[in-house]
Design a protein around this nucleic acid. Structure first.
Length: 428
RNA sequence: GGUGGCGUGCCCGAGUGGCUAAAGGGGGCAGACUGUAAAUCUGCUGGCAGACGCCUACGGUGGUUCGAAUCCAUCCGCCACCA
């Protein structure tokens, strides 16, 4: 399958939801070397799979010969989006922003090329936004927007109608900052396209309008859909936590598992969006998957592809090894060293070896080791049949001795299908 | 500035003096069935003990009472209407 325009390519993969002025944008992208900008707020030291989609869109565009501009929101990240938060955003120091930017660069580098003829560019919007005085801002930017216009934006209107939430003046101004970023990038790099998630549409069009008013030039916006999972859970969350790209925060195993557990109904969509497999190959995978959904070949392929890109062949290999062990039988005959390697990802807890001499009840031990918050919780888990030691189900709250250890020093605790904890007993 | 209202467990939300560790729902966790999917069903969801029992908890503090989430005072926070 080949496409005339990169836009058709993105559409076929479900990565394009909305564009402004589609025909002109198509013509614009017909010439290679066009700049396209997407912003990221550096609120953490890692991006998560939710951000990944934007990165992939940029990647496709770069492969088509265009130049991605990644904007770190050093300025916008400071004022951020207070909705649904009880605590104020903390101001990010320049050091932290630098750190987060570096992390971002590292994490997107498997997707985005920072070298070569159409090397990606990375900039921090604090560079130009920080130079504004308040008066200067009102004159140069604020003057071009009526409050009426701003209030028509969906993001603002929703909050105005929501009596409970309200919207702060700060947040109300957010779209102006973003609009000004776009203008600045047009002036500096000749960038005429902004991308983002579809929730950014209002902010993007504000930028388009600003460029038209101030420079008399037509700029364009394009958005990708916001992902919803078939079962209605929030995409990119696992047990309430975001799935990060940073292996320290989400291990390659956990990352791999997130994709493995995808709903059948989402697999095709994800394969198209998150992998770079050719569309006819994806089609073949999905047809095979329909024949034998229980094999979960679609999920496996999906998880393999994404994990390989993000964590490398090495990370993928580890994830798969861990998967085999974790969903396997009783854990016996391993040495400390082997166990350590396999369970490198797993949260571990340390207790003095002397603890074992007193043969504590299982529930007490697990509470002590912080596997559970309280003994009661541990007991409940045992009662409901959800607790396993070394992958063997525990049916009663019995005393634990060194007989129970899987290896010289370690006890492997599992709750549910595959949630592991290690308890190490220090020699001392 | 005035008047009225509200603040309950992770969230929503009942509850107006003892029968309330607090209905119901959501979420979460676990189990069964399966395919590490979906749907469904079951159990659990403050702490200690786990049999009775004890402790902590209904915005904060202080009070009334044999007894308070429930009444009073005061403080804090939020909301609505009026100006």
């Amino acid at each position: 399958m080949t496409f005339d325009s990169v836009l058709d390519h993105l559409t076929a993969r479900g990565l394009l939801l909305q564009t402004s002025n589609a025909d002109e944008l198509r013509a614009h992208f017909a010439t290679p070397g066009q700049r396209i900008y997407i912003g990221f707020d550096p609120t953490g030291n890692s991006i998560h799979v939710g951000h990944l989609l934007q990165v992939i869109v940029l990647s496709h565009l770069q492969k088509a010969g265009h130049v991605p501009i990644i904007v770190i929101g050093g300025a916008t990240g400071m004022i951020g989006d207070p909705s649904g938060r009880s605590s104020e955003r903390t101001l990010l120091t320049p050091e932290i922003i630098a750190e987060n930017s570096e992390a971002l660069r590292r994490q997107i580098s498997p997707f985005i090329d920072f070298t070569g003829p159409n090397a990606a560019i990375m900039v921090d919007n604090l560079e130009w936004t920080g130079k504004f005085s308040f008066i200067g801002w009102l004159r140069d930017v604020g003057k071009h927007f009526t409050v009426n216009y701003m209030m028509q934006k969906e993001s603002v209107r929703a909050r105005l109608e929501d009596r409970e939430q309200g919207i702060s003046y700060t947040e109300f101004s957010y779209m102006l900052l973003q609009a000004n970023d776009f203008l600045h990038l047009y002036d500096t790099y000749g960038c005429r396209v902004e991308g983002g998630g579809n929730d950014q549409w209002g902010n993007i069009t504000a930028g388009i309008d600003l460029i038209r008013k101030k420079r008399g030039v037509e700029a364009y916006g394009m958005t990708c859909p916001l992902i919803t999972t078939a079962s209605g859970e929030k995409f990119g969350k696992s047990a309430g936590n975001a799935v990060w790209l940073d292996p320290e925060q989400t291990s390659p195993y956990q990352f791999y598992q997130y994709w493995i557990r995808s709903d059948d109904r989402d697999v095709e969509k994800y394969l198209k969006m998150f992998t770079f497999l050719p569309l006819d190959e994806i089609d073949a995978i999905c047809r095979a998957h329909e024949q034998h959904p229980e094999k979960r070949d679609g999920q496996k392929r999906l998880a393999e592809e994404i994990t390989r890109i993000v964590h490398g062949a090495d990370g993928l290999a580890k994830a798969r090894t861990a998967t085999e062990i974790f969903f396997g039988k009783e854990i016996v005959g391993l040495t400390d060293k082997e166990l350590q390697a396999i369970f490198a990802d797993v949260p571990s807890h340390e207790l003095p070896r002397a603890t074992l001499e007193t043969a504590p009840l299982c529930s007490g031990l697990l509470a002590e080791a912080d596997v559970f918050k309280s003994k009661g919780e541990a007991k409940r888990m045992i009662q409901s049949g959800g607790l396993y030691l070394n992958n063997r189900r525990i049916t009663s709250d019995a005393p634990i001795t060194r007989e129970h250890l899987a290896t010289e020093t370690t006890l492997v605790v599992r709750t549910g299908k595959a949630n592991y904890h290690l308890i190490r007993f220090r020699q001392d």
